[in-house]
């Protein structure tokens, strides 16, 4: 049974054809490295899976059942979580408040409810500990390093029991040590049966953590094969177009 299946998904922005009929299947606990040049359509594809965009045409299946998402919340309810390229954090809120943004824990009686900061801080601290990140729940995001911000955004996806986590360039702006941590987290997710789609421009990341590499070029899938059966050289050729297809 596949966790996610895309069938001929296309997306136009006016005259721009960002995606031209993408088909893709992802199994439980599988890590897919999604690669491609700038503007190839990686972010667009991931945003469609996450319910941010409606595809112009094509179908999406989760656990073999066709779904149509009405926005990111709907996708989240179906077990799809995403870490956005710009992380979608609010600088003026604490790490914990960002983790829980939109699904704050509250306490009280009946309709009168107040934020349960203690519980949110506690749970966020646990999540950061799982991520082996030195992020303090009560610190403002404004004061945080790139790696800590990444941890906050990733911790968000851990709040629910997602079946699939989409990550848009999580290792683009962080230190080497933090990259290793993020890759470890991805392995940790996979071991719990979570499927991960990892967008990255960094060949070593993809080859160290992914099971399969999918290459997009100008909105089309030009390769989709196990990492064991390809090489960084071949993938580079596919990305640039030096190799037409594989």
């Amino acid at each position: 049974m596949s966790v996610l299946q895309l069938d001929g998904v296309a997306k136009n922005f006016g005259a721009i054809e960002a995606l031209k009929g993408v088909s893709l299947t992802i199994g439980k606990g599988e890590v897919i490295g999604l690669m491609g040049d700038n503007g190839a359509g990686k972010s667009t594809l991931v945003k469609i899976i996450a319910g941010n965009f409606r595809p112009s045409s094509g179908r999406i299946f989760l656990q073999d059942r066709e779904v149509t998402f009405h926005g990111p919340l709907d996708a989240r309810r179906h077990g799809v979580e995403i870490v956005y390229q710009d992380l979608a954090l609010c600088d003026n809120l604490t790490a914990a408040a960002n983790v829980f943004l939109g699904r704050e824990l509250t306490r009280g009686f009946g309709p009168i409810r107040i934020n349960d900061y203690a519980a949110m801080n506690r749970r966020a601290a646990e999540l950061f500990q799982e991520l082996k990140s030195e992020t303090r729940p009560k610190d403002l995001v404004r004061q945080m390093s790139g790696g800590q911000r990444q941890a906050v955004a990733i911790a968000r996806t851990r709040l629910s029991n997602a079946d699939i986590v989409l990550m848009d360039e999580p290792t683009a702006a962080i230190s080497v040590r933090q990259v290793a941590e993020v890759l470890n987290l991805i392995r940790h997710l996979r071991d719990q049966g979570v499927a991960v789609v990892l967008i990255s421009h960094r060949m070593p990341d993809v080859f160290s953590v992914a099971d399969r590499v999918t290459v997009l070029r100008r909105g089309t899938v030009v390769a989709d094969k196990p990492v064991a059966k390809t090489s960084p050289e071949e993938v580079t050729g596919l990305i640039t177009g030096a190799i037409e297809h594989a």
Binding site: N52, G71, P72, L73, R76, Y84, A88, L89, C90, D91, N92, L93, A97, L101, G102, R103, E104, T106, R113, I114, N115, R156
Partner: peptide, 21 residues
């Protein structure tokens, strides 16, 4: 209240607020 948190969130990064629901 959640409302208060959301008011601050919208002022800082409206897009993030939309995306997080």
């Amino acid at each position: 209240t959640r409302w208060g948190t959301h008011v601050f969130a919208i002022g800082a990064n409206e897009r993030a607020a939309v995306l997080t629901g």
